[in-house]
Amino acid sequence: MNYIFIFILLLPLKWVRKLFQKKQGRNLVIQTAKIGDFINITPLLAHLRQSDALLSRTVAPLAQHDDTLLKIWYVEDHKSGMLAKIRLALQLMNRYDNVYLLHPNNLNLFYAACCNAGNKQFLSNYRRKWYQTLFYWTANGIVEHSKISLTIESYLKLANRTLTKESYKKHATRPLFKNSLLPEELFRQDIIKIGISISAGNQAKTIPPVIWKKLFDHLQDLPCSYYIFGAPNEIGHLEELYRVTGKNRPFINLIGQLSLEMVPYAISQLDFYIASDSGNVYIADALDIPVVLLYGPCGIEEQRPLGDVLLIGPDHIAPSSFIFAAPYQFHHPAEQLYALDQRKLDDIHAFISDRQPERLCQTKPH
């Protein structure tokens, strides 16, 4: 509510400054969520060709290598107090002709409403509050997004209502940022290289070690090695995994060894990626790496990988986690949400083996 009052106080200044605005054709895209959400706005960025963006600093290592982005504002750099937020609002006010609001929380709505752009397109979702109506009155167009709307399409429709998920491809960085410091194990050609994420940003979406063990056991007849991705603070999850599976598995531990800007190129060297709903799944999908998504409580109609993907979900459990309403605890235990029965294990085995016939032939005894 505080942002409503500040916006009302700024209205006279906003109207006066609008008299002196010069059209320059600049675009501003506002999306301050995390890695997977950034990957899913890249089709819109590709459509717009050149844009500025207000993003989360979490995605800076990817955004700084994106040739569709010019000036990048990071929302965390302006959160030291209300004066800092007002200063950013004033900087944005007369700078843009087109504003696309993809992540409509209160702060982002405030920034978008303060802009004097002639074309402002706002996303509206199932978490919209009554008191945000004033901000939405400043928009020229609104795209209604539901729990069964595909986020990529909702984002694209902000720019053109006829665009669909087929209109533009996702990217992780554009062009792909290559780094010569990757571990040599990533370039092996004699094995099936499977990347895995054993944790997720939302810890409630972490796949339990007992589920991983069941999967590893079922795939043990395949020449697989598992490349474990993660931030340094995820080492505890690795220790839990080792306690259940043992260390005598074909594991390559990459936790804490790769900066985020190195991750897309590393994933591009893999044959598959397996994880719950996490940023790396969307990076892999953007790089055309086949994905096995154990989606657990997530609503996959709203957001999911769109390429070569095998979707594995819980039996008879309705989705309870959505893009704009993601709880940090669920009614069902993780062991049930991510359970793998024989049918699901067989589906994963077939998904992998069907895509690696040459490598499997090389490993069969003559």
Rank of each mutant, 00 (worst) to 15 (best):
H316I: 09
D341S: 06
G307I: 00
P327W: 03
D347G: 02
F330N: 01
L310S: 08
L306F: 07
F324A: 01
L310H: 08
S321P: 12
H332P: 05
L310K: 12
K344E: 14
L310Q: 09
Y328D: 13
Q303M: 15
S320Q: 11
L306W: 09
F330V: 08
D315N: 10
D308T: 12
I317A: 01
D341A: 10
H331T: 09
S320D: 14
F322T: 01
A318M: 01
Y328A: 12
Q342L: 10
H332N: 13
L345Q: 01
P333C: 10
D341G: 07
D347Q: 07
D315E: 14
D341K: 04
L310F: 06
S320G: 09
D315I: 03
A325E: 15
K344T: 05
I312G: 04
H316C: 06
D315R: 05
G313W: 07
S320N: 03
G313V: 10
A334S: 14
D308R: 11
D315P: 03
I323W: 11
Q303V: 15
A318C: 04
P314K: 03
P305A: 12
S321R: 01
D347N: 05
G307A: 12
E302C: 11
D341I: 07
F322W: 10
A318L: 02
I323H: 10
Q342A: 12
L310V: 10
F324V: 14
L345F: 08
P319F: 05
A326H: 07
Y338Q: 04
L340P: 02
E302P: 13
D308W: 00
L340G: 05
L310P: 13
F324D: 14
S320L: 03
H332T: 09
L337A: 04
A318P: 02
L310N: 08
I317P: 00
K344I: 03
S321A: 10
I323V: 15
R304D: 15
D341V: 08
A339T: 05
I312H: 02
L310I: 07
L340T: 09
P327Y: 06
S321Q: 10
R343T: 07
Q336G: 00
I348R: 04
H331Q: 09
R304N: 13
D341W: 09
D341L: 03
A334N: 15
K344F: 00
